[in-house]
């Protein structure tokens, strides 16, 4: 392309052509990878935790759930993420949504620790239903932004599990399986479906 004068019709064609070019290739594939990384981390951690608690009866095994922060730390401190060539408005909106969701996770952990220190009762059991609600909201909002129905409605499964846990009030070992299955339903399966759509 050169710096040459164009006629009026060429101008309109050029504008629409350039806008079309920005739409092409701005797929969500990378973000689906993030869904899969966190989804599988949750599923594997759920199974490992359930197995340890089931066979040892030790409730302390629930601390394996802190493994959920591993992908975040690896990504932040060990992965070289070059700045993308282009940032769309959707990219930045999704980034902000998950920043807020991530902050909610961190603040909940901090709040539980502070309350635990003050009351001498460190109870992380509410972390599980709250995490399902937070992650579900983030996934649903992502689905709305990228117009992917499979992400919008499947978090209701997680919400159902979270409400069930909240009404029970105290953590049981099968909550681990419930948690892992919820992530399978609203994060892993939808991410695979969406990725397959890109391949097609």
């Amino acid at each position: 392309m050169e710096d040459r004068k164009i006629n009026e019709l060429e101008s309109l064609e050029l504008i629409s052509d350039m806008i079309r070019k920005t739409k092409k290739g701005t797929t969500m594939k990378k973000d689906y990878d993030t869904f899969l990384i966190y989804g599988y981390t949750a599923l594997i951690t759920a199974i490992i935790t359930w197995v340890i608690v089931h066979f040892t009866g030790r409730g302390e095994a629930m601390f394996t759930w802190f493994a959920m922060f591993i992908p975040y730390f690896i990504n932040t401190f060990f992965c070289k993420n070059p700045k993308p060539e282009v940032t769309t408005y959707i990219d930045s909106m999704l980034g902000n949504i998950w920043k807020v969701i991530g902050s909610m996770f961190i603040f909940t952990v901090i709040a539980i620790v502070i309350i635990g220190i003050l009351t001498h009762v460190m109870n992380f059991s509410m972390m599980m239903p709250l995490s399902l609600i937070y992650a579900g909201i983030g996934t649903s909002m992502t689905g709305l932004v990228i117009k992917e129905k499979v992400f919008i409605w499947t978090p209701l499964a997680g919400l159902l599990a979270a409400v069930y846990m909240l009404t029970e009030g105290w953590c049981h070992n099968y909550w681990n399986i419930l948690f892992g299955m919820s992530f399978l339903v609203f994060m892993i399966i939808p991410a695979h479906i969406a990725r397959n759509k890109i391949k097609e």
Partner: peptide, 22 residues
Amino acid sequence: HSQLRLAVVSLLLSVEEADFSY
């Protein structure tokens, strides 16, 4: 009203930020 400048502005219309190589 110049091909290249109009192309650049049109590209930037639908993205928040784009780098030189893009």
